[in-house]
């Protein structure tokens, strides 16, 4: 899709980080589906008492007859979305990531993934973005769960620019997709929207040298870029790969990073078990590529209460944590 077309789809004005960072990922999602739904009459939106949190209010206003609020009943909503998809609709189903991935895991797997239906799961407030909501609201298992379902595409956009692009890219996707986004105004990873986004194709964000590579997704991408910039000043030159699609994984970009550097750090707002780190290590092991390897994310514990930035620091998925880890692995 050409950039000028995308511009007219998501926002009504030219966007740069300055314009985009006024909007959370969920707000951009809300705008993107409202635009997409003008052309595609089959798009419907389902929510579970989360219109405000999930930013689907614009859509509701514009297309009230295509908007369904199921109340606080997520399992029912996901199974119903399968029913609509079977009959030809393209449902965008929104709730917090933790409820989508855990409470509704079976409805998603059996009713949506198994029949390979074009349901778009937009999982907001993912990872540690509801920091002081505590464990019941942290979503640190969802990537692992969703990527283990056959037929499922799993996307973790780096910022709101990429969220808009990912949502629009679903237009031509025949099967189900899980798009996992944050809560607040996270810092922008991209300077502008002028890049080619394709599902399953990683983006090289920094390519300063071959000392190590950081493979990141979500909020960790911007942190990894900042770490790379800082490290470069100190003579450590790394590559940063934005692995926005966890499934299907961009094996080529991964293998190239592994072969070029021999040192891989993964960084994600997720448990270090089974998510991006899991996908990367499975691929490397199967290919017989040996690297020095370090996983950053929430260790195998239930995460603490705190503000997101404090938790990112605790689990080393901020700039300093990533820079420190890279220094360790290259020394």
């Amino acid at each position: 899709m050409a950039d000028d077309v995308q511009k007219s789809i998501v926002l009504d004005f030219t966007y740069t980080t300055d314009t985009y960072d006024q909007f959370t990922q969920a707000e951009i999602y809300g705008k993107a589906i409202t635009k997409m739904a003008e052309d595609n009459k089959d798009i419907v939106v389902l929510t579970s008492d989360m219109t405000r949190s999930n930013k689907t209010g614009d859509f509701k206003k514009t297309f009230p007859e295509r908007f369904f609020n199921f109340g606080i009943a997520e399992a029912n909503m996901f199974a119903a979305s399968a029913g609509m998809a079977v009959c030809g609709k393209i449902p965008f189903v929104t709730t917090f990531a933790v409820f989508a991935s855990l409470r509704c895991a079976e409805m998603i797997r059996t009713d949506i993934a198994y029949p390979n239906l074009p349901v778009r799961i937009i999982a907001t407030h993912a990872g540690l973005s509801q920091g002081n909501g505590g464990t019941t609201h942290h979503s640190t298992e969802d990537i692992a769960i969703l990527r283990s379902m056959a037929n499922m595409t799993v996307i973790v956009p780096a910022d709101s620019i990429e969220t808009g692009k990912a949502v629009m890219a679903t237009a031509t996707l025949p099967g189900p997709v899980y798009i996992r986004i944050g809560r607040a105004l996270e810092p922008m990873a991209y300077p502008d929207d002028n890049y080619d986004y394709q599902i399953g194709k990683a983006v090289i964000m920094r390519d300063y040298g071959k000392d190590a590579a950081v493979i990141a997704c979500g909020v960790a991408v911007k942190a990894a870029c900042d770490a790379a910039d800082e490290l470069k000043e100190k003579g450590v030159k790394i590559r940063v790969v934005n692995m926005h699609t966890i499934k299907p994984l961009d094996i080529d970009a991964l293998m190239k990073a592994a072969r070029d550097t021999g040192k891989i750090v993964t960084a994600e707002e997720h448990s270090i078990v089974g998510g991006l780190a899991g996908a990367v290590s499975e691929a490397l092991t199967e290919a017989g590529v040996a690297v020095k390897f370090k996983r950053l994310g929430v260790p195998d514990i239930f995460s603490a209460i705190g503000y997101p930035d404090e938790l990112y620091a605790r689990y080393k998925i901020n700039k300093n944590g990533i820079a420190e880890t890279v220094k360790d692995i290259v020394s």
Binding site: F99, N132, G133, H137, A304, G306
Partner: peptide, 28 residues
């Protein structure tokens, strides 16, 4: 309340709060 490593967040955690009989936060 709500601060880093506090026993208290927006939803109660029985492992951190004496007298709390069950951790909750996911409705239903």
């Amino acid at each position: 309340f709500n601060n880093l490593d506090s026993p208290f967040g927006m939803h109660p955690d029985m492992k951190k709060i004496p007298g709390c009989d069950m951790s909750t936060g996911s409705l239903g």
